[in-house]
Each structure stands twice: as C-alpha cells, then as structure tokens.
Amino acid sequence: MGIAEITTIIDKYVRERFEIESDDPDYSDEVNLFDYGYVDSLGAVEIIMFVEEHFGCRISQKDISKYPMNTVREIAEVVLEKLQ
C-alpha cells in the first residue's frame, strides 16, 4: 500500500469524523489539523486509534515523540513506515 492510498484513507476518515466539508478552501492533507482548529487533543487520540485499527499497526509513544503528526500527510508517513 503506497503513501497516496494511506493518505486518502486517513483524509476520508478525518473529513467525516470532524465534519470538514469537501469544498473547505483552508483544508488539505498538508494543513496543521490542530493549529487550524479542525481537531483537538481528544480528536488526535481518536485518529491514532482509527489508524491502529484500520492499518493493523501500533503507534507507540516513541513514534509520537519521534515524528511530528500534525498533518494527514505526516500521519500517513508514520503509518507507511510502520507497514514496511
């Protein structure tokens, strides 16, 4: 599974779960979800749990400390590395 596919899956989840409209100009998979108020810290936990369940990988405290996970793209990159 490539980075593009992973990004799309996470992107779809985030849009639905946090009710982000498809035509929202500010939103993209590069935008900082937290700085721009799409997701709060509780939401961050939910995204991590979704990613763990959906991709069957384990996001540990080590990963959170080692890699910034503020954008959909960054989360996807961590997942990609986990799957390899």
Binding site: S41, L42, A44, V45, I48, M49, Q61
Partner: peptide
C-alpha cells in the same frame, strides 16, 4: 500539552482526561 499528552496517551482518553 504534548509533554503531558505523551505520558497519558496510548490509553483511551475520555473527556475528563482531556
């Protein structure tokens, strides 16, 4: 926030913990 968050993360976070 992140230094607190990292310590408590990994567990199911409810509103009260948030």
């Amino acid at each position: 926030r992140e230094h607190i968050f990292v310590v408590v993360s990994g567990k199911r976070l409810r509103r009260i913990q948030g």
